[in-house]
Design a protein around this nucleic acid. Structure first.
Lengths: 220, 220
DNA sequence: CGGTTCACTTACCAAGTGGTAAACATTTGC
DNA sequence: GCAAATGTTTACCACTTGGTAAGTGAACCG
């Protein structure tokens, strides 16, 4: 789909190499995330990039090695997208709200990124271990954050890991299970997305916020 | 993996044909659901079944035609698994609880079934339309059920379609996002599953049950 | 300038892909 | 009992797959 670079390449050789590898990783992430690893051949990727498959194999010794690189890149982008929300200001619920909005935004604008994580989990084996290792620092931060919020009584007490997974899969599911959404009769338009996000937020609010704290907030 | 039938086949020819097609569909559903449609070749399937790929192509004219048949079967099994829960007795929450337990059980015992639905949604196109059409009656029933519960004040009022998707993806996510679970440090053991289900139920309870109704129930 | 390194291409290849054609064995209808 | 229908196999085929080997032109470095 992407066009070959028409203009002659610019910059130092090292810079151009970096740029090429970047383009390959970006297209690979997009393709692997939407179509699946096995469904995308190196020839497909190369065609999308306007190069030959051997150019890809020059930068990575095998398709599997390319996958590893894409995993690292996906984890990095995921962390960049989400980690900032943990550092933002704001009290308990408003911060959770901003995290949810952020996940939602990513799910809407970059579904291939989240789809890719799912794809990796299905491939299993070394690939799973790699993404797990890559995401570990972020997961630790998020878990610690939830624990602090529970200690402060702003979020109902429960297993922080489960809360993280529940919130993640709820938002991710609501945002990405387009097929189920369509089956339920919710057209995936932009307008309906806003409605869904609002409903989802109140859903999560009821589930997460500690009752005592909520009562003291005059129902947000 | 499955062994070839050692004993000579029994029953009438029609019955044996049905049995063979059944076995093919079962193995195909399992493989497509866990490894993905493109990752499973007809030779792989045939080897698992102890037959040749041409035997499969005799019953369905192409791999794609086989996929359609698997879709129909998956939808049927899904409806069988879930639809009964909608007809069960019990008041508002207890019925929801039984539905959740049922989805959870399916996600634990037959992850390939739910994985297959996801796979279909990624393939998109005709395949998606087919599963949508297959599931429509069930979705209608479930939505109508939620609407009745809301009218009765036993479930907090919200969009019934969204509630269905939210509950579905929450349970499904919690039960199947093994990768994320592992990243969060929750080992996917059987023991931890029980704990997770209990926590999830209270999570959903807080999210779904109407506050007024919950208060009158002495906190379940 | 001249050689070396680098990024990439052209030319292949063996293995596997979905699918066809025809032979073969069993079972059914007459 | 026999021919026809049926389920399955063996034998192929054109095409795609990930990957290798060798060549090519430009950038880099002395």
């Amino acid at each position: 789909m992407a066009l070959a670079m028409t203009s002659p390449p610019k910059g130092s050789r090292a810079a151009r190499t970096r740029a090429t590898e970047d383009r390959i990783l970006a297209v690979a992430l997009e393709s692997f995330g939407t179509k699946g690893f096995d469904s995308v051949s190196l020839d497909d990727l190369a065609a999308d990039l306007g190069i030959t498959k051997q150019a890809i194999l020059y930068h990575w010794s095998s398709k599997r090695a390319l996958l590893d690189a894409v995993i690292d890149r996906a984890a990095l982008e995921l962390i960049i997208e989400f980690d900032g929300a943990l550092s933002e200001d704001g009290s308990g619920w408003s911060r959770v709200e901003s995290i949810v909005r952020r996940i939602f935004r990513v799910a809407m604008r970059r579904p291939e990124l989240l789809g890719f994580i799912r794809e990796i989990s299905r491939i299993g084996g070394d690939a799973s271990l790699r993404v797990t290792a890559d995401l570990e620092p972020f997961v630790s931060r998020a878990t610690a954050y939830f624990e602090r919020e529970m200690d402060a009584g702003r979020i109902r007490r429960c297993d922080p890991g489960l809360l993280l997974v529940s919130a993640y899969s709820t938002v991710l599911g609501t945002a990405t299970e387009v097929e189920v959404l369509r089956a339920v009769g919710i057209a995936p338009t932009l307008r309906s997305t806003v409605v869904r996000r609002r409903e989802l937020l109140s859903f999560l609010y009821a589930a997460m916020v500690a009752p005592d704290f909520a009562r003291s907030q005059a129902l947000r």
